[in-house]
Amino acid sequence: MPSKSNKPYDFAAWFTWVDNPVRVRRVVRALLIFCAVLFVIDLLYHRHAYFGFEQSRGFYAISGFVAFAGIVILAGQLRRLIRREENYYSPESIDGEKYPPNELSIIDNKQRSEFTDSQQNESITSRSTAHMDQGGDK
């Protein structure tokens, strides 16, 4: 069932900043400040801790940063090792095939897309739907 276009309130507006590099930069800056404040508090506040190393200053900050970055980077390396094309196991695996459309209700209503950079998307969308229809006949 298509959602109605004349809604009283559009939650999408909450997120429009994501597509605005300036506002994104502002958010990042806020995050930096937030982190800095936390770090400072951590320096001042004596935490209860289970382990000695945990007590060291900035432990959580550093470990959070390092762990995250490390995971992402290591994962990137892992990908080089284990990446395969989508129908690697079998041409009939779920990774290669389309989701059968009869259980879905694929609705793509472009008239509602106030946020669209309209020049590119129509062609992509129509192509993908056409493709989907073909897949459905299988």
Partner: peptide, 27 residues
């Protein structure tokens, strides 16, 4: 702290392009 700095790290890897791209593949 943990989450905030992890988010920072996210920003960092995004900016530096270290974040793995989303590509059609299986692992």
């Amino acid at each position: 702290q943990l989450l905030g700095f992890a988010l920072l790290a996210f920003v960092f890897v995004m900016k530096t392009g270290l974040h793995p791209h989303e590509i059609r593949a299986v692992n």
